[in-house]
């Protein structure tokens, strides 16, 4: 069987989770590789969540929040955006490829966009291969 990457999607409740729901109500098909964890705001995304996901065997982590300026909590998404570069730098030091973590803005009306991002990321991760046998030392 070909490699099926596992993606943990951490989505904010107001925009991105609603957008993913919209993909559902509009029956927009996408790769089943993503599993969604809901947080109220992408600002809640502690970088350790991303590390935890890799530790537990994820091949990629997708963090989605409201578009800049649209945050339900004013600017939680900006705070996430600011944390990302540091996290990515750290992941690089661990040998985790850049493409394994993605931060995207998905609004409540962008069901289509969510589906497209998931499909894209699934393809990219297929190309990158499984996380454990690639990059890290096998323990995540």
């Amino acid at each position: 069987m070909s490699f099926e990457p596992r993606i943990v999607g951490i989505l904010c409740n107001w925009c991105s989770y609603t957008g993913a729901d919209l993909a559902g109500t509009s029956r927009r098909k996408y790769a089943p590789n993503v599993r969604v964890v809901r947080v109220m705001c992408s600002g809640r995304v502690d970088p350790t969540f991303v590390l935890k996901a890799f530790e537990m065997g994820a091949d990629g982590v997708l963090v989605c929040g409201c578009h800049p300026g649209d945050c339900h909590y004013q600017d939680g998404n900006k705070k996430t955006a600011r944390r990302m570069p540091l996290l990515k730098k750290m992941l690089a030091q661990f040998g985790i490829e850049d493409g394994r973590v993605r931060l995207e803005w998905v609004s409540a009306s962008e069901g289509d966009r969510f589906a497209t991002i998931v499909n894209e990321m699934t393809e990219q991760l297929r190309a990158l291969g499984p996380f454990r046998s690639n990059g890290g030392d096998g323990h995540g």
């Binding site: 964890v37 947080v39 109220m40 600002g43 809640r44 502690d46 350790t48 909590y73 939680g76 705070k79």
Partner: peptide, 26 residues
Amino acid sequence: KGCGTCVAACPSGAITGRHFTTEQIM
């Protein structure tokens, strides 16, 4: 309003976001 931004940022892990605790999300 429970956004949890402070919870994620607290360097000493002293803030708990009720119903979205680090333990629950992990």
